[in-house]
């Protein structure tokens, strides 16, 4: 599924968070947006998934406009958002969280097959399936959040800071799983402050500063760019 964003502008309380960004994500691509806090990365994802309404510009998937649709309708169009901070439903069990990911579907057989697939990606979720989500570790909650998003059968998966606060080993594991998901044909947009990790995983990257895209290139080129190295890779 191809995603086109054209001249997107977003205002929060009259302060411009996005000042007009445009980009295209081809079907099956794995891209990242890097940038510092407040650069507009999260806002971009939140606008695509319908949580935030743009003040100008368009978003379309395979040529169809989605920028006026409500968040719960956009899920049905094949876009799934793993929000920053995991946002799992803490008083519900793991399996209840996963079933809610498939809330828009009624075909129980297919849902259960999807559930098996999520469990094959994240075997630890199967072990903990009847535990309350609040009892999971940070890494497990992140896995649950991703698993929940997969249950909605996304064609485009948006991930906001999945590595935040996780141990390096867990980050590594999650990264591998994301690559696997992408190989299965899902378009993945990854927003990360951990640019090092992001640029190792993806094909193509965008750099955001102050609500604008200031640079875009293949991942290896960005990793070698002086500005990126100084500002985001800490070298």
């Amino acid at each position: 599924m191809r995603l086109d964003v054209t001249d997107l502008k977003v205002d929060y309380h009259n302060i411009a968070a996005l000042k007009g960004i445009s980009f295209t994500v081809p079907d099956g691509a794995f891209i990242t947006m890097i940038g510092s806090n407040g650069a507009g990365k999260s806002t971009t994802l939140r606008t695509i998934s319908g949580l935030v309404k743009p003040s100008a510009g368009t978003i379309s998937v395979d040529g169809e406009r989605i920028d006026r649709a409500a968040a719960d309708k956009i899920v049905a169009m094949g876009i799934s958002h793993v929000p920053e901070g995991r946002r799992v439903f803490k008083d519900l069990t793991v399996i209840e969280n996963l079933y809610l990911g498939a809330f828009i579907y009624k075909d129980q057989d297919r849902i259960d097959r999807d559930l098996d697939e999520v469990y094959s990606h994240f075997p630890r979720l199967r072990e903990r399936s009847s535990q309350q989500a609040r009892t999971l570790s940070g890494g497990e909650q992140q896995m649950l959040s991703i698993g929940r998003a997969l249950m909605s059968r996304p064609k485009v998966l948006l991930l906001d800071e999945p590595s935040l606060g996780l141990a390096p080993l867990v980050v590594q594991e999650i990264g591998e799983i994301l690559q696997e998901i992408n190989k299965n044909g899902v378009t993945v947009i990854l927003v990360e402050q951990n640019a090092d990790l992001a640029l190792r995983l993806v094909d193509y990257g965008y750099v955001l500063e102050n609500g604008r895209i200031i640079m875009s290139d293949k991942a290896e080129n960005l990793a070698n760019n002086d500005h990126v190295r100084k500002a985001y890779l800490g070298v």
Binding site: A70, D72, V75, P83, F89, L92, L100, F103
Partner: peptide
């Protein structure tokens, strides 16, 4: 019931619930 979980999900986190396609 799934609808019951959805009710509880909305009361825990409206946005996250909307992201699952649950109409608040």
């Amino acid at each position: 019931s799934t609808l019951g979980w959805a009710v509880r999900a909305v009361s825990m986190d409206r946005e996250a619930a909307a992201l699952q396609g649950i109409s608040t």
